[in-house]
Amino acid sequence: MLMYVRLTQMREGERGIVVDIHGGHRARQRLLGMGIAPGTKIVVVKSGRPGPYIIAIGNTRIALGQGVAEKIIVRREL
């Protein structure tokens, strides 16, 4: 199994750590401010095309569209 994947490739219930964020300045800054930064631990709550994807960061839940979710690179935690 791949260790480094896009958020869109994660399955419901899986855990991971954000390692990078691609995409434009604006989308990136929005994600960074919302606590999605390299090093952030996430749990995938809802997954599957065509989105939305829901992730848990601590007690927060964040919904992301397909486009943004593809820009988030995650290291799977097994």
Binding site: G23, G24, R26, A27, R30, L31, M34, I36, P52, I54, N59, T60, R61, I62, A63, L64, G65, G67, V68
Partner: peptide
């Protein structure tokens, strides 16, 4: 202005 990326917090 570009479209805003879709990221939204789901408050409890």
């Amino acid at each position: 202005g570009e479209e805003s990326p879709f990221v939204i917090e789901l408050p409890e």
